[in-house]
């Protein structure tokens, strides 16, 4: 049995009377790419924010890297990386200054930052860009720089919240290549997406609707179970089934309501 990286038991998060995450149980293993699918408002972002320590759960248990999210959020923060769809970079600063800053807030010393910086520039083939304003970078580069910054402190678990929104297919494929390399080095990847072809790259996927798990398995098994050729079709079938089950449709909610 592989080591467990993230585990939740009956995890719940309410916003007022609205239940964003409803009794979720998952186990994510070390060195796994764990994909997290769902329509907007399904509770993906809420889930990630709870695991990263940005949001307190309403009830239930959750551990990240064996650490409790209620009591050990400080230690959790040291061992995780996070990258959101916004590519949280400072566009008015240079590439180098961004890297220095993110290295600085993780207490990395100058030597380590220097080394990491060279690694990022080398692996992204962007050596010439050190003194370029981040604003002037092509979107694909921004995305990879954001990823580089999230990996500066060698996190054991990396959370990616829709990391490929808005970039072109070529950049998206390059991005996934880096993800695979990162996993090979021992990092667990927890990724949300609504691109179904990306779901195929994941070891296991987890589909959520209205705060609840509706499927959790490997992409191959899911496709076989529902006799579909692609994850796209699996997803649509599952979500439609859910819609039929509902006697009272859920209110239209927004994923970013926190």
């Amino acid at each position: 049995m592989p080591e467990i990286s993230v585990k939740t038991e009956n995890l719940v998060r309410n916003f007022g009377s609205f239940v964003a995450v409803n009794q979720v149980n998952i186990e994510v293993y070390q060195k796994e790419i764990f994909g997290f699918l769902g329509a907007n408002g399904a509770g993906k972002t809420t889930m990630i924010r709870m695991l990263c320590g940005l949001l307190k759960p309403s009830s239930g248990k959750a551990t990240v890297g064996g650490l409790d999210v209620y009591r050990q959020s400080e230690q959790i923060k040291r061992s995780i990386g996070y990258m959101s769809q916004k590519f949280s970079l400072y566009e008015d600063l240079t590439v180098e200054e961004n890297i220095n800053f993110y290295g600085g807030i993780y207490d990395l010393n100058q030597k380590r930052i220097q080394k990491k910086r060279d690694e990022i520039f080398f692996s992204l083939g962007m050596g010439d860009y050190a003194r370029t304003l981040t604003y002037d970078l092509p979107l694909g580069f921004k995305q990879r720089l954001a990823l580089g910054c999230a990996l500066l402190h060698d996190p054991r678990i990396l959370f990616l919240d829709e990391p490929t929104s808005g970039v072109d297919p070529k950049a998206r494929r390059d991005f996934w290549e880096i993800i695979h390399q990162t996993v090979a080095l021992g990092t667990t990847i927890f990724v949300t997406t609504h691109f179904m072809e990306e779901a195929e790259y994941c070891h296991r996927v987890f589909i959520m609707d209205a705060g609840k798990i509706i499927a959790l398995d490997t992409p191959t098994k899911l496709k076989n179970r529902y006799k579909k050729k692609s994850m796209q079709e699996v997803f649509v079938t599952l979500v439609e089934k859910q819609q039929e089950k509902k006697t009272n449709p859920m209110p239209d909610s927004n994923d970013k309501m926190s």
Binding site: C52, L54, K77, Y82, S84, K86, S88, I105, C149
Partner: peptide, 13 residues
């Protein structure tokens, strides 16, 4: 607004 605050908050700062 730009989301960088969130990025800082997931760090040990």
């Amino acid at each position: 607004e730009t989301g960088t605050m969130e990025q800082i908050l997931v760090s040990p700062v």
